[in-house]
Every structure is written in C-alpha cells, then in structure tokens.
Design a protein around this nucleic acid. Sequence first.
DNA 1: GTAGGGAATTGAAACGGTTCAATTATGGCA
DNA 2: TGCCATAATTGAACCGTTTCAATTCCCTAC
Lengths: 341, 341
Amino acid sequence: MATIREIAKLANTSIGTVSNYLNEPSLVAESTRKRIEEAIEFFDYHPKAAARSLKSRFTHRIGLVPLISSEDNRSENPGDNAFLELLAGINTVAAENKYDILLSAATNHADEMKTYQRLFGEGNVDGIILQGIQSEDERILFLKKKKFPFVAYGRSDLPIQYAYVDIDGGQGIIQAITYLKSLGHSRIAYITPSKSLMCTRQRWDGFIQGMSQNELQIRDEYLIEGDFSEKSGYESTKAFMNLNTPPTAVLTSNDVCAFGVMRCLKEMYLIPGKDLSVIGFDNVSLSQHWQPQLTTFAQPFRKIGFLLMESLLDMIHGREQFPHKLVQPDLIIRESTGPVC
Amino acid sequence: MATIREIAKLANTSIGTVSNYLNEPSLVAESTRKRIEEAIEFFDYHPKAAARSLKSRFTHRIGLVPLISSEDNRSENPGDNAFLELLAGINTVAAENKYDILLSAATNHADEMKTYQRLFGEGNVDGIILQGIQSEDERILFLKKKKFPFVAYGRSDLPIQYAYVDIDGGQGIIQAITYLKSLGHSRIAYITPSKSLMCTRQRWDGFIQGMSQNELQIRDEYLIEGDFSEKSGYESTKAFMNLNTPPTAVLTSNDVCAFGVMRCLKEMYLIPGKDLSVIGFDNVSLSQHWQPQLTTFAQPFRKIGFLLMESLLDMIHGREQFPHKLVQPDLIIRESTGPVC
DNA sequence: GTAGGGAATTGAAACGGTTCAATTATGGCA
DNA sequence: TGCCATAATTGAACCGTTTCAATTCCCTAC
C-alpha cells in the first residue's frame, strides 16, 4: 500500500506539500495539485487513519454506547425503533462531515463506565453522544471532569453545564391541551409520570401553563401520579370514571399507560374518543394498530440525531461550548380523541 | 496524558517490557508485572489506539455500513428490528473479544462503494460485515480482490468462495411441511418468491424435499410465483380457492404476502387456520397483532449476529478461510394454522 | 537593481506505541 | 564450579502521518 512518501516522490514534491494538499488544498499551487492528484489516483492512495490521528489528535470518529438488552427480543420495545432513527440522524450528519460512529459495548452492565473510560483514554473518538441519561449520571460527571466533548440526549438534574438535546415535553402538553380545548373539552385529567423523573417536572410546567393559557381549571381529583405501567393507566381511569363529574379527556404518561386507560374503558363499556379522549406519549408501533388507534406524541428521533451530531461537531471544533436544544414532539391525532359529546 | 515511556520509567523497566505486559502478560515476571500495574493504575494509563494500530496493523475495529432509509420513517419496516438484533449479536461477541464496531454511512447511495474503499484503504478496520447481499454484489468482488477479511449475511450467486452466514430457508420449509402434515394437511400450496432471488431456489429445494419426505404430492396448480407483495398473496389465493379442489394450506413468500392471503379469505368469508392454514416468513411485528395471529418463520437475528462476528474474528486471526454457516429459522406457531377440517 | 512580502515548498522532528534481535538473569544439573 | 537452556529484559528502529520553522520563489513597488 502506498504511503505519502511514494505519492510525494511520484508527484515530484515533498511529503509536507502532499499533506497540505490532503488537509488544506488551497495551500497548494494549481500545477502541484494536479500532479499530486494524479499520483493519488495512480496508487489509489488513502492516508492511513492511524498515522493521521496519532499526530493530529483527531480520529474523525464519535463514540456511542448502545443500550442493548441482554435477552433476545424482537419485541415491541419502543426504544428499538427510536435508537435506529436516532442512529440514522446521527449517521447522516456524521457522513456529511466525514465522521464515523464507533459503537462500543460493555460485556456487562457493570462495566459500562469502563467502556467510556476506554473510549476516552485510548483516544478512540473525538467526542461522545450519551443516551439514557439518568439522574446524577456518572458518565456526565466523568466526561465533564476530563473536559471531553460530549452531548447528551436528555437532561439530568446535575447542577452543571453540559450540552444536550431534549424533547420539549412541556410544549407538547400545552399543544395537547389546546387541541383538546378546540374539541370542546374542559375537564382534562392528567396521569403524570413518577415525580422522581426529569420529564415529569417539565411536562407538569407545561400542564399548568397550557391549562391557564386555555382558561381551564385544574382540578385536584383529575390528577394522579402514575408510572409508565399499563396498570397505572387502568387504575387511574377507574378512579376518574367513578367521580361524580368524570373528566372528558385524559393525558397519560406514555402509550402503555394509555392502553391501560382504554382497557378500563372497555370493561366499563365506554368508548375511547367518545366518552373519554385519551392521549398517549411515545408513539410506540402498537399505538397505530390498537383499536381504536391511539392519539399520541411522537418524538422526531431522526431530527434529534441530527441535532445531537451537529452540537457535538460544534463542540469538537470549539464553535460552541454547551449548546442546548429542545425539540417539539409531534402530536399525532388518531382515533382515541374526539369532540366532547 | 501518560505514555508508555512514563509507565516504564515509574515501573523502573523498559518500554518493551511494558508493551509485552500490555499484549502478552505471561512474558513478564511477576514482580515486574506488579510494578507496571501500579504505574498504570497511578497514571490511569490507556495505550493510545492510534499509536497501537499504526505499528501493529490491528485496529480492533470491524466495519459495518448500515442500510439507512433516507426518509424519516418510524414505520413497521421489518428490517429495522432485524438490524438492531443483528447489531446486538455482533456487538456482544465483539465486546467479548475487545472489538468495537465502526459504523460508516455514505452520504448518498451512489457513494456506497466509496465508503467501503475508504474503510479498507484508510485502514480503519480489521474486517467488514456485509448485509443486504445482492446478486453479483460488487462489494464482495472488491473485498475479495483486496484479500480483506469480510463476512456476508446472505449468499450471492457469485462463483467465488467467501464467508457467509445465512438462513437455511430450505430446512424451514421442510419443517413447515412436516408440521402441516402432522395437522392432517396434504394439499399444500406454495407462493414462491420471485425466481430471480437467491432465497427462492433454496426454499424450493426444501419444498421438494419436504413434500417427498412426507410422501405428499406436489401439484402444479398449487404453485404460483409471486413476489413479496400483499397483492400477490391476495391474487394467488383467489386463484387457489377457485380450483375444484382447493388447497388446505399455503406457504407464502413472506408475512406481507400472507396478509394478502388472509384479506382474500376474509372477503370470501373463509377463516384462516380453519378453511386454509397460512404460514408467513419473517415474523414482522405486525404478524403477532394481526387477526388471526400469523404462524410464521422468525430469523434468529441475534444469533446470526453472533455467528457473523465469530466468523469474522476467525478470518481476521487466520483460524479459518471462508467459514459458511447456516441457521434454522424458527417456526412460530400462532393462530393462522390449524388441523385440517 | 533591490527591498519587501506573500505564496509555495521543504524536510526534520514528533506522535506513542510495537517489534525483534541482542543481551542479561536465572535455575538446573553434572 | 562451570555450562547450558530458558526466562526476562532492553532499546533502537519503525509505522505513516502532521506540524512548523525555515527556505525558496515570484512578483511588485520604488
């Protein structure tokens, strides 16, 4: 395989000039450039990545540690499609900027931090994208301490500055309430996710703002803290529908919870979208095959991937310090919502 | 960041010995080993990947070019989950062997070959996994010519030796026929995929063998060459059911085709699994939510990922030349098949 | 004719490991 | 004690780029 020295020799110039051509062609005179191009063509020359990054300190790679469930599952895991769309988005921007994605997995979950230390320590990548952010996320603390470029998909509750892209759950809720109001709803219930989660607070702020903006009254008996389970949807609905004046619409914490709501309605011979409008969150693939099809929020994962990669490149090249970006979820209107009777 | 020289100095030994420790600890005496370990611990030392692979010619990375659909789709694309499971399998074996996966995308489809040339030419990876094999696949020709380690998921019709992992569609069909026979079926129809595809021939061989093994008669009017479309399932079924003695069971080319079969039955007020047993191929996520749930073949993608990576490692390390591996598809029995009435 | 300055080019040093032939240490045995 | 085989260690050379200070080239202005 040809090296830069052979190219230089054939093009009758020095390796320094060839290197310049490779990295900043404008530094090279027209005639020299032509000869170098011919030599490169002749040898089908590609500069070796290892040599390049040894000296330049740039790998043109970014790191990503996939969350892989250990068991074999081809199930409806909503995260699956999400990850793939995310990857597609990241990959698109990466390719446009001549970057590759390095996927590193830990053999077991306990070793996950070791994977990040290795990615960083061995100089395998120029930056890292984090997903599945947790409260007090130690990966964030680690990378921040090392001053290594990274972007997180999701906000944590750490009191430090770092780059992230996240869903604007609050704006979503506002949008949903406005939509429900336009259908004539005023008695809107809300099954919130568990209080301990980051997204809950953001959505809750949106709920308050959305209700006041639409001049609707928040009623305590219409609020239940659930979790992401089917059961919490089922049980909350039971409680709601046994009130003297039950709500006419309910916002749930996610699609699975919304399925629980609908199961309860079915048992009570009530019809989703008619007796109670139901809105989910996530747009899992089942939601469009359910009977009735579920109105829900979709996260534009591909766009999130774009933004993650763009932010990371900005950081790597020192164009920005800690970019923050929020994206609106898409309200996908299907059959589980309808005008109030 | 510490280098191997600093480690050697602190451990009071030479860089050669430290390098030995890193790569083949058995070469280093116990006492020296201890001092080196302490020094590594002290500096939190990680050998730089670039320096390592510059001289050793091993990157500890394998390359994979994902097939990314350009449009934003969070649809039921059956390939999506497949790819993720495949990746999970590859990643697991890779991690166990201290390998990472390099994902490289082309900005547009026309440049795909360039991506492979770059992956190879820049020395970015030790080997490559190919998916979506096509007839006369130029990637295979290229990598073969360069004598670069690669494993393909799927067979092509090229008359050259290369490593692959593939589904044993023929064995699947035999299994399906044996299963149908056990339910009392003898009039079995088969909607084959298009003749031009590699898998068709393999499945067809299985069909012949399965029928003769079960002492069943192949009848020409029960054979239709379809494609992977819903429509071909629909129209073939119309033809079958208008015969004087219609079949009691039908094997289809894939799940989508099977859905077409069932739509036709519904129109004719016939019941899948009762009036006609239907077997799909692929186990797309819809197949278990269909009414009735579809009996179909699932590909064990995660296992395929294992095998791909294991084969590739064998080739990289010169343990095998062109490993071939076939895996059985899993017949998933659901509601669209039943005993003959 | 010459000074000045920008554009183009040069080549040695550096990046941080691995490799390997050569050297030294160690232990067993007569 | 001396000899030999084997284990352990050494360090210089090398991998193929980038980098940068120094040099050369070329043109313009005076």
